[in-house]
């Protein structure tokens, strides 16, 4: 089974199993990875499940739609590889993926 590693802002690593079809946000929440708020529960409506992917995983994660891009725009500490984790569906191909969590969710 594939695994994904979340790295908190302070460097703490959490490696968790992939459950195909579950969103990246839900994967983190279900494994009690701190640093994601998910205030809207995964409706792409709040921007509080912001994560930063490493460059090489951008393609696997797919392209952000307009509503996601709009919300990311509002996050002051976004970067070029920022995504909302509720909009990424995990697959076995994401085995080894590394996801960084920002210092704050806003």
């Amino acid at each position: 089974m594939g695994r994904i590693t979340f790295i908190q802002h302070d460097g703490t690593r959490h490696t968790v199993d992939i459950e195909e079809g579950k969103s990246l946000m839900q994967t983190a929440m279900d494994n009690l990875v701190p640093g994601i708020d998910a205030d809207c529960g995964g409706s792409c409506a709040c921007g509080t499940c912001h994560v930063v992917l490493s460059e090489e995983w951008m393609a696997a994660a797919g392209v952000a739609k307009d509503d996601e891009a709009n919300l990311l725009e509002l996050t002051p500490d976004r970067s070029r590889t920022s995504r909302l984790s509720c909009q990424i569906t995990t697959t076995e191909e994401m085995d080894g993926m590394v996801v960084r969590l920002p210092e704050f969710q806003m």
Partner: peptide, 18 residues
Amino acid sequence: ARNHISFGFGIHRCMGNR
């Protein structure tokens, strides 16, 4: 408890929530 709607959702979501 965080799933409340008081801050609104979408691009006009409360800026001062934190």
